[in-house]
């Protein structure tokens, strides 16, 4: 079988699961950055992607599992010129999503959180969806366009 580069890229994906330990924050963002390299991102795009992933994974660890042991699941896929990243935890969930998305809102000021994580994610990717069920967990899905599709004729 012979594939042309692009058709392979359209189907590429990666799964990664790891325990909710803070040292895995860098593992997660570096893995996503390495995965996205196939789309030939600029340094700025790569930094934004890494930062958004770092925010989502950190939230799963600090807020989702509240520092307790749990599993964080990361899924990535390349679709056309965009990368999609899903970060999922089975933690406490978010009761009030609207409040959580407010810039500077944090439920853990005593941990010196800045409350800017979700705002940064919103600004650093092209689309962000959050699904959360209190008591069950949170799923954050983001999409970042790396190579805009050529305008169709």
């Amino acid at each position: 079988m012979e594939y042309v580069g692009h058709s392979v890229l359209q189907k590429n994906y990666m799964y990664l699961s790891f325990p909710s330990r803070s040292e895995n924050e860098s593992l997660a963002r570096v893995a996503v950055a390495a995965f996205a390299t196939a789309l030939d991102p600029t340094l700025e795009q790569l930094t934004e992607l890494k930062t958004a992933v770092s925010e989502a994974v950190t939230n799963a660890i600090i807020h989702g599992y509240e520092g307790q042991e749990g599993e964080v699941r990361l899924r990535c896929a390349i679709e056309g010129g965009a990368v999609e990243v899903v970060v999922e935890d089975d933690g406490v969930g978010i009761a009030d999503l609207e409040q959580a998305r407010q810039p500077m809102y944090t439920s853990r000021p005593e941990l010196e959180r800045s409350g800017m994580g979700l705002t940064i994610m919103e600004n650093f990717v092209d689309a962000l969806w959050i699904d959360s069920v209190p008591g069950q967990g949170t799923c954050v899905r983001m999409r970042k366009v790396i190579q805009p599709d050529p305008v169709s004729q």
Partner: peptide
């Protein structure tokens, strides 16, 4: 070479 919102928390703290 890399900083996320945890760094902002450190600065503000």
């Amino acid at each position: 070479d890399f900083m996320d919102s945890s760094g902002l928390g450190l600065i503000l703290g």
